[in-house]
């Protein structure tokens, strides 16, 4: 167990990171991600109110659907990334643990009369992820297996009232399941009793999301990185890109027109040696052109992988680069992400 954002978090269970990771890719793993911030935005005009702080198209989000979005700083940096779902009568939000207090304060600031943010600190969040999750869950929760990727519904599992979306942070099919905290343990036990399900910790979660090319807030994106640099422009609604009516729109518009100076790319080191976050990236035999933001060993990839920011001239797939690991250049190439293909239930 390690402290993280005020929570005691399991990095790994007795099986270990490698086994947990591979099990999620072959069968299914259950993650406790209750540290994530949950809230709902209620009232007439909630979607428009949320669009004041995000460039996501929230108003076009249909009931029963969820989408990924960014909260923005006024100067075009990323304040946080989050999930927003339309539950019909309200919006449901999931934000990062380390940012939840700041995020909720940002969203609440200047909300119109009639719209209010309800923080949900008494709700736990479990993630059941893996290609075997649907077969395990189907018999006990057919309403969940009826969802497609990014669908969301209220249901009951093992007698516990839940809210589940078909989404996750591993690149695999799966669900993120919100439940009342006092019933979370019973729910977790019921899910762990399903065939093929093993507990998985933060360590496996990190190697799985990196193989899937997904950003970790605070490492790969932060208040200095823009959506264009981070290659997250797809999360900006088309309508929003016509109206440019979101915080930081000026920077995004300028970078889309002229190109960003640096961009987030995938990197594959040659051989087996991993390069970790904060490793300097050099042009071969030359000077610094960027930095790794996340890096490690991909158990399913069977080799090392990283993501980071490089100067635009060095961002094309296949470009040779040196990663300066402990003072020595480690040869690497820019590589497309995800490193391991996504397998969502679209």
């Amino acid at each position: 167990m390690v402290p993280f954002a005020g929570y005691a978090m399991p990095v790994q269970y007795p099986a270990g990171i490698l086994t947990e990771h591979l099990h999620v890719r072959s069968q299914a793993g259950l993650f406790d991600v209750s540290h994530m911030g949950q809230a709902e935005l209620v009232g007439e005009g909630a979607a428009a109110a949320l669009e004041r702080v995000t460039p996501a198209d929230v108003q076009a989000l249909k009931p029963g659907r969820q989408r990924y979005g960014l909260l923005m700083t006024p100067t075009g940096g990323i304040f946080d990334d989050f999930m927003v779902a339309n539950l019909g009568d309200r919006l449901f939000l999931v934000v990062n643990a380390s940012r939840k207090h700041e995020d909720f304060a940002l969203i609440e600031q200047g909300l119109p009369a009639g719209v209010r943010l309800n923080r949900l600190p008494d709700r736990a969040l479990l993630a059941l992820q893996g290609p075997g999750a649907a077969a395990a869950l189907g018999p006990v929760a057919p309403a969940l297996t009826a969802l497609t990727f990014m669908g969301i519904t209220a249901a009951e599992v093992a007698g516990v009232p839940i809210l589940a979306s078909r989404s996750g942070y591993t690149g695999e099919d799966g669900w993120e399941i919100s439940a009342p905290a006092e019933q979370a343990e019973a729910l977790a036990k019921a899910l762990l009793a399903l065939p093929g399900v093993m507990p998985a910790g933060l360590g496996a979660r990190d190697s799985l999301r990196l193989e899937a090319g997904l950003c970790l807030y605070g490492s790969d994106i932060d208040e200095t990185t823009s959506p264009v640099e981070a290659a997250l422009v797809w999360s900006i609604g088309k309508r929003r890109r016509m109206a440019w009516d979101f915080p930081g729109a000026e920077r995004v518009r300028e970078e889309l027109a002229n190109g960003a100076a640096r961009v987030r790319v995938g990197l594959k080191p040659e051989g087996r040696q991993p390069a970790r976050g904060h490793t300097a990236i050099h042009a071969p035999g030359g000077g610094a052109i960027g930095e790794i933001t996340s890096g490690g060993f991909g158990p399913s990839l069977g080799g090392p992988m990283a993501m980071g920011y490089v100067a635009r001239d060095h961002a094309t797939d296949g470009t040779a680069l040196d990663l300066m690991v402990r003072g020595k250049p480690l040869a690497a190439r820019v590589a497309p992400m995800p490193f391991v293909p996504h397998r969502y239930a679209r």
Partner: peptide
């Protein structure tokens, strides 16, 4: 945890006590 890479010193190298001479990388850290 699970070790995925080892960087070993060169044979013939003279080392002093307490000197970092090898690196072991696990899925967690170096």
């Amino acid at each position: 945890g699970d070790v995925v890479f080892v960087d070993l010193p060169e044979v013939g190298r003279e080392v002093t006590a307490g000197e970092a001479i090898a690196v072991v990388e696990s899925v967690k850290a170096a």
